[in-house]
Amino acid sequence: MKIVITCHLPNDIIQPLEERYDVVMWEKSSEPMPRERLLKEIEDADGLFTNVADQINEELLERAKKLKVISTMAVGYDNIDVAAAKRKNIVVGHTPGVLTEATADLTFALLMATGRRIVEGMDVIRQNQWKSWAPFFLTGQEIYAKTIGIIGMGRIGLGVAKRAKGFSMDILYHNRSRNQEAEQELQATYCDLDELLTKSDYVVLLAPSTENTYKMIGKEQFAKMKNTAVFINTSRGTNVDEEALYHALKEEEIFAAGLDVFDSEPISSTHPLLSLRNVTVLPHIGSAAIETREEMARLACQNLLNGLEGRPLVHEVK
């Protein structure tokens, strides 16, 4: 049987696959397999190792005459047409859990860098603009003992809340259901979205990408935030109306934004948000810790092996 891997992985990680199957792996580590190559390779593939950079849509699935299992190296799977896969009896696996702590680390790091204007400070030095000390030079927002509002109290949201507790922050959260662990162990307070937006000094978006969360944060929501508020998004770019965010930042309706994700990725250096001083951006690296990415890759490989050998996937998208 044949397996297609759309990204370049270390040899020791794919060895269990190569011992059993014919593996076609994209050779470049800096970019995903081109769409045309993927469409060709998928025609006789039994297994597909993919990630968020690939669009696994109905067009591709119609060409996949032998495909039995799709395994994505990610928690989210909004780039995969799961319904179309199910119609063709293709099982879909993903990698939740293993990236929780790395993404929570990155989220809180982005929160701190944005609130305290860390990247702006580095740019000032690089551009030789640091001339002297001044009382209000590059002043940002305090973090300690402030209020954080977390939208989406899943595994990663809980991880961010634990880090916020270490900074003595008051924790508000909004979720589809109550999180008893967050409330009992961290004294987090459940509230509706409007209350969270109104009261929070830091608004952190960690909601999944669904029809209900599409552009859930827009003009109306930014208008409810404090003008000193810092907005952080490490969930999905499609959850935010970027035009409304640009307006809110430019007009200083909110203080700043830290973004690891965008509506359409990758973005270019001419993206409108990059023209603003009060934006800190990252290239979708929420889980980009070496140990985490290696574990994600191994789990995705195990999902593939299980699916091809007729065993339940470790984590199957239902």
Rank of each mutant, 00 (worst) to 15 (best):
F108T: 04
F108D: 03
F108Q: 04
A109S: 12
L110E: 10
A113C: 12
A113I: 00
A113E: 08
R117A: 03
V119H: 06
V119D: 02
V119R: 11
E120T: 04
E120N: 14
G121T: 11
M122V: 15
D123W: 09
V124L: 13
Q127V: 09
W130L: 11
W130A: 03
K131C: 09
S132L: 10
S132V: 08
S132D: 14
S132G: 01
W133L: 08
A134G: 14
P135F: 09
P135I: 03
F136M: 13
F136K: 14
G140W: 04
Q141Y: 04
E142G: 10
E142N: 12
K146D: 01
I148A: 05
G149R: 06
G149Y: 05
G149S: 03
I151E: 03
R155T: 11
I156S: 05
G157H: 02
G157N: 10
G159E: 10
K165N: 13
G166V: 01
G166C: 11
F167P: 03
F167N: 10
S168P: 00
M169V: 01
D170N: 04
D170F: 10
D170W: 02
I171F: 00
H174T: 13
H174L: 11
N175M: 09
S177V: 06
N179F: 02
N179K: 08
N179A: 03
Q180C: 06
Q180I: 03
E181G: 10
E181Q: 11
A182M: 03
A182S: 05
Q184M: 15
Q184G: 09
Q184T: 15
Q184A: 15
E185T: 11
E185G: 00
E185A: 14
Q187F: 11
C191K: 04
C191T: 12
C191F: 07
L193K: 07
L193F: 07
D194L: 12
D194W: 07
D194M: 05
L197W: 12
L197Y: 10
T198C: 12
K199L: 12
S200A: 15
D201K: 08
Y202F: 15
V204W: 07
L205N: 09
L206T: 05
P208Q: 00
P208G: 01
S209L: 11
T210K: 11
N212H: 13
T213H: 08
Y214V: 03
M216W: 01
G218N: 00
E220K: 14
K224C: 08
T228F: 08
T228K: 03
